[in-house]
Amino acid sequence: MLNVFDIVKLTKIDHQEIDSNQVVVTDGNGKPNAVLTELLNDVVSNMRLFVNMAEIYSVDDLLLALSTHTPLPSDVLDEYEKVLREPIYDINFVPKRGQVEVVVGEG
């Protein structure tokens, strides 16, 4: 099963890595999960600033790169790991908003 990291790694919009405002975490009914969305947006922002994703192949690689290149404390990295390892059940592209909805719970 794919996880949130896989979607962040593989998804491109107009041939560019997704930006933090382009990904939304929802449940199986389409209801946005504000906490996970905010956490994932933070991960993506830091990832885009400090990490070359072409050199990253796993959650462990990303967390190591972030711990090396940022002053983020271990508790923040632990929260990043939780959202990145969250299994996904579906993905929905919303072209009008330029967003990707990552569904992390069954409907």
Results as ranks from 00 to 15, higher is better:
residue 1 M to T: 04
residue 1 M to S: 10
residue 4 V to I: 08
residue 4 V to Q: 05
residue 6 D to K: 03
residue 6 D to F: 04
residue 6 D to A: 12
residue 7 I to D: 01
residue 7 I to N: 01
residue 7 I to Y: 06
residue 8 V to I: 15
residue 10 L to Q: 11
residue 11 T to Q: 06
residue 11 T to V: 09
residue 12 K to W: 02
residue 13 I to G: 01
residue 18 I to R: 02
residue 19 D to F: 09
residue 21 N to K: 13
residue 21 N to S: 13
residue 22 Q to F: 02
residue 22 Q to N: 00
residue 24 V to R: 04
residue 24 V to I: 15
residue 25 V to M: 11
residue 27 D to R: 04
residue 28 G to M: 11
residue 28 G to Q: 11
residue 29 N to M: 08
residue 29 N to Y: 10
residue 30 G to C: 04
residue 30 G to K: 07
residue 32 P to M: 12
residue 35 V to Y: 09
residue 35 V to S: 03
residue 36 L to C: 01
residue 38 E to I: 00
residue 40 L to K: 04
residue 40 L to A: 09
residue 40 L to R: 06
residue 41 N to Q: 15
residue 41 N to F: 00
residue 41 N to D: 06
residue 42 D to E: 12
residue 42 D to M: 13
residue 43 V to P: 02
residue 43 V to D: 05
residue 43 V to W: 04
residue 43 V to N: 06
residue 44 V to A: 11
residue 44 V to K: 09
residue 44 V to S: 08
residue 46 N to W: 10
residue 48 R to F: 01
residue 51 V to K: 10
residue 51 V to M: 10
residue 52 N to D: 15
residue 52 N to Q: 12
residue 56 I to M: 06
residue 58 S to C: 07
residue 60 D to S: 14
residue 60 D to H: 12
residue 60 D to K: 14
residue 61 D to N: 14
residue 61 D to K: 09
residue 62 L to Y: 13
residue 63 L to P: 01
residue 63 L to E: 03
residue 64 L to S: 12
residue 64 L to E: 13
residue 65 A to C: 05
residue 66 L to P: 07
residue 67 S to L: 00
residue 70 T to R: 05
residue 71 P to E: 15
residue 72 L to F: 13
residue 73 P to K: 14
residue 74 S to W: 04
residue 75 D to I: 00
residue 77 L to Y: 10
residue 81 E to P: 00
residue 82 K to E: 12
residue 83 V to M: 07
residue 84 L to V: 06
residue 84 L to P: 05
residue 85 R to L: 14
residue 85 R to Y: 06
residue 86 E to H: 12
residue 86 E to Y: 11
residue 87 P to C: 12
residue 88 I to C: 05
residue 88 I to W: 02
residue 88 I to K: 02
residue 89 Y to H: 13
residue 93 F to N: 00
residue 94 V to T: 01
residue 95 P to S: 13
residue 95 P to Y: 14
residue 100 V to I: 15
residue 100 V to N: 03
residue 101 E to D: 12
residue 101 E to A: 05
residue 102 V to P: 04
residue 104 V to D: 04
residue 104 V to P: 02
residue 106 E to Q: 13
residue 107 G to Q: 09
residue 107 G to C: 02
